[in-house]
Design a protein around this nucleic acid. Structure first.
Length: 497
DNA sequence: AAGCGACTCAACCGCCACACA
DNA sequence: TTGTGTGGCGGTTGAGTCGCT
């Protein structure tokens, strides 16, 4: 808060001519009233004094009693807030130190918008302070097109730093789902679980046996990746809403639930894809000459349109926002510099709200150009359209034994049960999903990164022999791992290391 | 100097979880 | 088991300030 408490207080005091009036003066002057209507607005020094006095006497807690016993015309909540944010003696005043700022970034990358928890890790700082700091920081970075999380934080998160902070989070914590929350995409896990439990996904039992956070804690990037990847999958308290809102959801995603459909489709794609080896992007690349790389589908913004636009209430607290890491993508080593600024939230919002048109159909943003959220939405749209239009076979996955085997295990039928929520092959999902020139989901970059190899230049991408090598390498990656795909998405999303 | 937009931050609001009767 | 009270949390708002033109 940059030491603004005193500043603001002075500000307000001087403005309101409330110069350190005594308690008695305050009472007489109407700031205090006991039985009268509760006062709102800025606190005066007199009120502060009363509150401090009261807390010294009675200790913290029982805030509603403050009004009764002290005569303060403030509700208990307000008293608590004032005490916690401004009057507590252990509060650290002044600007955040660079260390604190870095810590906040780290914590946010791990926890999302868990301001209170973050505050607990920053002695003397309040959740409100951190929240304000973060929000202003986000807006600033948004405008500048700078990624929210510096690469070092991302690296730290991915390189097993879960020992430190994440380790402090109890796995059995009832709030473990909080780890799935970040900035805004809300994906109802209840619905996801319903769908998965329906038997659609061969992998689902294992998948579902693991709490989201601990599941994602497995593997290289673990929950950190998840946080970064899905910074706002929201906790069950939200899911409860969706449960009641869509009681009939029993595994087959109702078409009457368009918004959830998209998310469900995506999450199912995610799971379906896990049952398959990662099909290469390059075949797809070679077959995308005169058509959109995703089957000529409407853009993700169009996807949102008509379904989740702000013009219509979204059930189940579905709220869209870009994950922090998506705000922009930078070129390697360009942290802090604007590489290819993505639309700000405002403009994204505009996209979301703008009506779907044929124009948007053709001008839609591809995942590689707009980040993971776009990719997710785009993919969902792809899936939808693929039900109506049989998926293009761009990669013969039947020659991949493992894929073949797993595909046959897919109860959904990779050949496209038209009635299935995922009425097309997961392989096609990836084929269609893969970016044309691979800056977002770039398999070779991915493989290089995962293998710690940096030897394959971009220029060989179209070389079939290299492609074969890459396929070999990618086959070493255990994509059946629950988190493998998440890792993929994350690595695919990253291009700034 | 004035106007205006961006920024900051304290405070409020609504929701939720928990404790307790 | 249910209802109520309380505290906590996260999102949002609005007033004041700053800085640029």
């Amino acid at each position: 808060m940059k030491g603004t408490t005193n500043k603001s207080e002075n500000k307000k005091m001087s403005k309101g001519n409330c110069d350190l009036v005594s308690v008695e003066e305050a009472k007489v002057g109407g700031n205090l009233g006991g039985g009268g209507p509760l006062k709102k607005g800025p606190w005066t020094s007199a009120e502060d004094a009363i509150l401090v006095e009261y807390v010294k006497k009675h200790g913290e807690g029982n805030w509603n009693a403050v009004q009764k016993h002290s005569g303060l015309s403030r509700c208990g909540k307000s008293c608590r807030l004032r005490w916690a944010n401004h009057l507590r003696p252990d509060l650290k005043k002044g600007a955040f130190t660079p260390e604190e700022e870095h810590h906040i970034i780290e914590l946010h990358a791990k926890m999302g918008n868990k301001w209170a928890r973050m505050a607990a890790e920053l002695p003397g700082r309040t959740d409100n302070e951190i929240k304000n700091y973060w929000n202003t920081r986000i807006k600033r970075l948004q405008r500048s097109g700078t990624p929210i999380y510096p690469p070092d934080v991302c690296f730290q998160l991915m390189n097993g730093s879960e020992d430190d902070h994440m380790g402090t989070l109890p796995i059995g914590d009832t709030h473990h789902h909080d780890l799935l929350q970040g900035d805004s995409i809300e994906i109802p896990f209840v619905e996801l679980n319903n769908l998965l439990n329906s038997g659609y996904l061969s992998y689902s039992p294992k998948f579902l046996d693991i709490p989201p956070s601990s599941m994602l804690r497995q593997g290289v990037s673990s929950s950190h990746t998840y946080d970064l990847l899905f910074p706002t999958m929201h906790p069950p308290k939200r899911f409860r809403e969706s449960e009641t809102l869509f009681p009939g959801l029993d595994g087959s995603v109702s078409s009457a639930l368009p918004v959830f459909n998209h998310y469900m489709d995506y999450t199912c794609d995610l799971k379906a894809a896990e049952t398959l080896n990662f099909s290469s992007s390059f075949d797809q690349d070679l077959n995308t000459n005169d058509q959109l790389p995703f089957g000529g589908l409407s853009g993700s913004h169009a996807l949102l349109n008509g379904n989740s636009s702000s013009s219509e209430p979204i059930s189940g607290a579905m709220k869209l926002e870009l994950p922090s890491l998506q705000y922009s993508e930078t070129q390697p080593g360009s942290w802090g510099k604007l590489a290819s600024p993505l639309p700000s939230l405002e403009s994204v919002d505009t996209l979301i709200q703008s009506p779907p048109t044929e124009q948007t159909h053709s001008d839609c943003l591809s995942p590689r150009s707009s980040g993971l959220l776009e990719a997710i939405l785009y993919e969902s749209r792809t899936l939808k359209d693929s039900r109506n239009n049989p998926p293009r076979e761009t990669l013969d996955i039947s020659v991949m034994p493992d894929v073949k085997k797993r595909s046959s295990m897919n109860p959904c039928g990779t050949d496209g049960d038209p009635n299935s929520p995922l009425g097309h092959s997961a392989a096609s999902v990836f084929s269609e999903y893969t970016p044309v020139s691979g800056s977002s989901i770039d398999e070779h970059q991915l493989v290089e990164f995962m293998l710690g190899c940096d030897a394959m230049p971009e220029t060989v991408d179209q070389d079939p022999s290299h492609y074969l090598v890459k396929k070999e390498i990618s086959s070493l990656i255990d994509f059946s791992r629950p988190d493998a795909l998440l890792d993929l998405c994350w690595f695919g999303h990253r291009n700034d290391f």
